[in-house]
């Protein structure tokens, strides 16, 4: 599904290399987790994959089902099936959540040459999916993320994911700022979307999210590279011993 080879990325405005030759392959239908200490480049990876400005790719490649992602506009990547759940979802006053969702869904359908959803079809679908995530009608009507609590914002991210039905979902520290109950709710939302044709890359600091979203593969990232790859037990090792041991072991 996602194949990253030797990816090197620096900041556009300063001479700072963030990713230093990162290799990562996420197979179709699998859930991979990336853990790593602060500053290891986890969020940068998610931004570069989804096309945020401010980064310069100095080497390597990233492909989604064989298509080169890095030359594409963010909206083209989205239409291709890439989705990033933001660590800090953005507030957009004056744009209703429903309008936003419908614009996004139909823009992607249009880009893929599919017919746009009618207002009725869309409404039916969004209501059903919102209900599963305990998102009420009021939250759907309100401007995008404005006045939402931390948990509501993250649930709203998952709702967008559910509506856009991407192939490759990247979750950037989706657990940050969530209490235990909210985390469970979000994890349930994600688990409901797990399927044979959909892959996940879950970026997190902590093992606790992985208790709820069970990964197939866990990677440890440090200093712009994947330094160790293993099964779910690797996350437990981090939780018990911290990153220091693993980093010492691989260096």
């Amino acid at each position: 599904m996602l194949e990253i080879k030797g990816l090197k990325v620096k900041l556009e405005d300063e001479d700072k290399q963030i990713l230093k030759g990162l290799d990562l392959t996420v197979e179709t239908g699998k859930v991979h987790a990336i853990m790593g200490p602060n500053g290891s480049g986890k969020s940068t990876l998610s931004y570069v994959l989804s096309g945020k400005d401010g980064y310069e790719v100095t080497g390597g490649s990233a492909q989604l089902e064989g298509d080169d992602l890095l030359d594409m506009e963010p909206e083209e990547r989205a239409a291709l099936g890439l989705f990033l759940a933001f660590q800090y979802p953005v507030e957009i006053p004056g744009v209703g959540n429903m309008t936003f969702l419908r614009t996004a869904v139909n823009a992607q359908r249009k880009a893929r040459g599919e017919e746009e959803l009618s207002a009725g079809e869309f409404l039916k679908e969004v209501r059903a999916k919102a209900k599963d995530l305990k998102i009420d009608a009021d939250m759907l009507k309100r401007p995008v993320n404005v006045g939402f609590s931390g948990g509501e914002k993250k649930r709203n991210e998952i709702l967008q994911m559910a509506m856009l039905t991407p192939k490759m979902c990247i979750l950037d520290e989706t657990d940050s700022g969530l209490d235990v109950d909210a985390m469970k709710l979000v994890a349930e939302g994600v688990n409901a979307l797990r399927s044979e044709g959909r892959s996940f890359l879950v970026i997190t600091h902590y093992q606790r999210l992985l208790d709820h979203i069970k990964p197939d593969v866990v990677h440890i990232m440090a200093d712009g590279k994947i330094v160790k790859t293993g099964g779910p037990e690797l996350a437990l090792e981090v939780e018990n011993n911290g990153y220091a041991d693993i980093l010492a072991e691989v260096s």
Partner: peptide, 28 residues
């Protein structure tokens, strides 16, 4: 720019996203 990227990452084309944010600016 952050909001613009957010919208584009959801598949909204850049011109549509800009107009949405401009309308959002006028909403108050």
């Amino acid at each position: 720019e952050t909001a613009l990227f957010y919208l584009r990452s959801r598949g909204v084309p850049i011109n549509v996203a800009r107009n949405l944010l401009t309308l959002s600016f006028m909403a108050e």
